[in-house]
Structure formats: structure tokens, C-alpha cells
Design a binder for these strands. Sequence first.
DNA 1: TTGTATGCGTTATCAG
DNA 2: CTGATAACGCATACAA
Lengths: 339, 339
Amino acid sequence: MSDIRDVARLAGVSIATVSRALSNPEMVSTISLNKVHNAISQIGYHPNMLARNFRSTRSYEVVTVMVLVPDIVNPFYSLFIRALEDRAQQKGYAVLLGDTRGDPELEMDYIRRVETRLADGIVQLRPSLEKSQNNIPPDIPCVNACGCEYTTGPAIRIDNRAAAKTMVNYLISLGHKRIGVISGLKDNPHAIDRLEGYKEAIAEAGIPFEKDLIAEGDFTMWSGLNAAFQFCNMKVRPTAIFSMNDEMAIGAMQTLKNQGIRIPEDISVTGFDDIAYAKYSDPSLTTISQPAEEMGKMAMDMLLKVINGEPLSQRECVLPTEFIIRKSTGPAPKKTGAT
Amino acid sequence: MSDIRDVARLAGVSIATVSRALSNPEMVSTISLNKVHNAISQIGYHPNMLARNFRSTRSYEVVTVMVLVPDIVNPFYSLFIRALEDRAQQKGYAVLLGDTRGDPELEMDYIRRVETRLADGIVQLRPSLEKSQNNIPPDIPCVNACGCEYTTGPAIRIDNRAAAKTMVNYLISLGHKRIGVISGLKDNPHAIDRLEGYKEAIAEAGIPFEKDLIAEGDFTMWSGLNAAFQFCNMKVRPTAIFSMNDEMAIGAMQTLKNQGIRIPEDISVTGFDDIAYAKYSDPSLTTISQPAEEMGKMAMDMLLKVINGEPLSQRECVLPTEFIIRKSTGPAPKKTGAT
DNA sequence: TTGTATGCGTTATCAG
DNA sequence: CTGATAACGCATACAA
């Protein structure tokens, strides 16, 4: 591996000149510039970023960002990350992956790495409540990109409550009165916000809240598949199911179809996120589209500002969602689907 | 940010002792060890990995690996990466993300970063032919984790040809004689290998090869959806479609169903990869399961050996696949489905 | 415009 | 077992 010294020697200039030729070409004469460039291509020199970056600890030369994601296999997250990474790449920054699998221990491991300067900042994709505040030390730059209503600090989020309410209102407008919910884990902030929206909607429609209509999942297809059984076995089945994400909705539809229940004739199903598969499911899924890519892009930009100490125009950025009607929803059946 | 010097001062020892206490505790007396630990927790010291790593360039202390992936949104890749990252995390290494979006320019950008020592090695997920050799300089440690038959250098792969052949043989055993193919891009090594398997299978069954039965896609659902039209419009439709991945198969099924073609009664459809959605598609997809997680794990282990200069027990590791029969395939219909 | 010399935070070498 | 001190590769203040 060749040195900056090797280049200097070959080019017949000082290492300072080589350094400048690379970082501040305008400070170097054309002649030297040429000599340096020739030398570089001759010996195939690549500046050592580790050294460069290490040297300028106090400078605002960012290089690496760590993204903390609960599960990169989830299409919503991977879409987000692709956009984030794209943005970073454009600006010449690098993205370190930290798949926490929802494990707080693992998350801490990753955070520690950032403390060791392996990265300059964090994009947190785990929604965090105020109490169980993301255990990220205050001195390390961080943006929460999946915030909820209780998130503190720089954050990007959607209005989960309003989106959920829109969805449930739509179901109500179709005549549904018994609307089941497939929720995320009860203490998940998104689940909390979305349930809030559900409650508001039914309350305004004069529909009483029934605890039995809430099934708990964990945002995986498998959990959606299981949750649906709870509804199949009820004496009076709900005529619609509001699933808190698309994957659980897809799992649930699987169960329903296996039980001979028609969608949407017998029961309507809705999702959340609008992952790619939502459009291709059978039937295609009515859902809420989150601007995953926009969020990824913004998260990157926002974090850079935080790192560079620039002021944020707004601590929190709430992005709009889109309500997408497909074929998994329809009018409530005339007689409630008793078993 | 506190220094190693701060720790030394507070602990009343030399910085060398502090360094040793952290890296080689066995070389330090218990007394000093305690003093150091106390000091560290008092001032909240975190060793600067950048400096540490920079200092020991020639040491075998790896920290970062870059994974070059065509598209992280593809579930097969994200599953692979999750496993890779998991393994890296266990060993204390970090994974830099390089989503190339299939763009060679972008890929070069990432490779350059590795040349600048931002990472110590590369896991390449783009299959590469010998001719269009992955343009990774020979001096940088690399493992190709999606190899094909022509891949050179350390590689992990499956036997695409054999897997494809198994699948097509199965379709033939069901009585299918006109078997359409939804291929990846023609010059994609995986597509080439799998097509080879298809050709071998039909040849052995005495079925002539028809160029018209090959539709080209690009491994996205959208392309599968479009490719299927080619078959729908044929005078004599194929009775089975061998899609080179699950996503295209899912897209194709969408088209078929929209055209009123029943699966598998009128036409059988098969996929490749066994992504999570394959099980939940309608009908569930007969496919080939690739051991994505196993591959990710092995890729990490293999790359570490390469980086550390340890000898590889075998240059290439060919992993077994699993043939999974679900509900998208059935006996060939009696009369060929003429339009 | 250029060169010299210093320091970034650690590890490693060498005496003690 | 411990403490000075010299690297590591580069950027930069300062001097020329």
C-alpha cells in the first residue's frame, strides 16, 4: 500500500503539497498538480480515509452514519434504508448497518460503537416512547425517523393517529360497525397511536369499543395469520379488520381465505405501509402509504444538520400519508357474518 | 470527549498501561486494572476506534466489511444481509451498506471507498461472469456470495442449473410439455445458469426448445406482471411457467388471474428463492428455497479468513437448495389451453 | 505557492 | 509489570 510520502517522493514535491493537491487543489500550482496526479496514477495511490478522518476529529468532515433498524427484512424499513443510503452515497457518506432485531441489548452494542467514533451519528428506526427513551447518549447526534407522538428530539414521522382514523372512518362509511384490529405489540408506540385513531373514529360514529376486537400481533405475517383465527372463532365476526401493517394483513387474509371467508364480500381487510406486495396480494390491499423513501432522504439530511451543529428549521417533521383504496375492502355484508 | 491521557492521569498510571488494560488485560496487574477501570467509568471514556484502527493497519484487527448488494429491497438480499450482519455483530465487526442498484458506476464508487480503507473487505452480491469480472482490485479481500458457475475467486453459491432442472423436471412429471420461462435479464449469470437447467430438462424429455417460450424480466414483480402477457396472448399457451424468481412469479400470477386463467388448473406457476411472501401468495408458490441466511453467515466467515490471510478449505462453496411444492402447480390440463 | 514541523489518539517497542 | 517514546498517514499552522 502506497503512502502519501511515496507520491511526494515520486512527484518531487513535499507531502504537504500532495495533501493540498487532493483536498484543496486551488492552493496548488498547475505544475505541481500535474506532477502529483501523474505520480498518483503511476503508483495507484489511495488516500487512507481512516487516517484522514482520524486526523480531523474536530472538523466537521462527516463520513459515517449508523442506521438502527428493528428488522431490515421488513420491506418498509428496507425501502427506507435504500433511500437513506442513496442520499448518503450522493453526498459521499457511508452507512453502517445496525439490525437490532428489536433487541435492546443489541441496540446498545451498536450505540457503543458509535461512541467509539465508528460512526458520527445515528438514524434510529425504532419508535420510542418518552419513558423508554432511546438509550442514546445525548451527546451523540441522532434523528428518530419513525417517531411517534411522544418522541422527543429531532424526528421524522407520520401522523399515525390521523392515518388510522382515516382508514377506520372509511370502513365505517362502508357500513362496517364491528371492526376488528390486528395490532402491533401493545407497547409499540405506533400501535398505540394507531389504536388511538381507531378509537377516535369509532367513538365519533357512536360505536362502542370492544376489547375482544383487538388482536395482538408483532408486525409479522405469521402473527397476522394467527391473529385472524381469533376473529374467525368469534360468535359474531367483525365485518372488517384493520391491520396495523400490510404484512399482518396478508397473513390474516391467508387465514380468512382458508376458512372459506370471502374478501371483501364477507369481511374487509385493510393494511398499513403500502409495501410492494400489498398491490399484488389477493385481493389487493387497501392501505395507508407511508413515504418511506422521502423519509429516508429527509432523515439523512436532518442528521447531517444535527452533526454539523446547524439549527433545524423544525425539531419534528410530520410527513403526509396517502390513503389507497384497493380491492380488499367493500360494503359491510347485510347480515353480520355469524358462524 | 475524553482522552486516554485523561484516564491515565486520573488513574495515576501511564497511557501505555491504560492501553494495555483495555487490549491486553493479562499484561496488567490487578491493582492497575482496577485503577484504570475506575477512572474510565468516572469520566466515561470510550476508546477512539478510528485511532486504534488507524494505528494498527497491519494488525489483523478487522472492523468493517462492505456489502455490495444490487437491491436491498429484494427480500432474498435483505434476508442474506440480516444474517451477514448478525454474524458480523457477534464477532464485533461492522457492516457498511453499499446498495448499487445494479449500477456499475455506483458499484465502483463503493469499491473506491474500500480502497481508501473505509472497509477491510467486500462481500459482493452481484453475480459476475468471468468476462465482466467484478471490477474489484485483486488486492482487496472479497467474497462473492451469489456466484454462478463462471465466478472466479472465493465464492458461495448454489447450483442454479441443477435447481432449475429439478423444478422443470417436476413440471414435466406433471405432464407439462409447453413450459414458459420468465427469465432475468439475458446476461445475468443466474438467468444463464437457470436457463441451462431448463434446457437440459426439456431436452432429456424430448421436448424441443422454443425461443418464444422465454420471456425476459428483470427480477421485479412488475416485470413478471408484464412478461406474463406474452404468454396470455399466445395461440397455444404454455401450461406451466417457470419463473426465475418469486417476485416475478407473483407478478405473473397477478396477470394470469386478471385474465381469468386459473392457477394451477389452467396453468402452473413456479418461482425461485422462497421469499416469505411465496408462502402467502394466492395460490402459495411452488419454488426453490435458497439458504439465504446460511449464505450470509458463511460469506462473513469466509471473508474474514481471506482478510486474515488464512487458507480457504475450498475456494468455492456450493450450498444445497430445497425444492418446495405448494399449490401453484398441478397436473397439466387435458387439452392445451388454447385461447 | 511551497516546505517543515507538529499533532490527532492509539498501539507497540524498548528499556527499566 | 510499567513507563517513556516512536510510529501510524494525513492535514495544517507557520515559516519561507
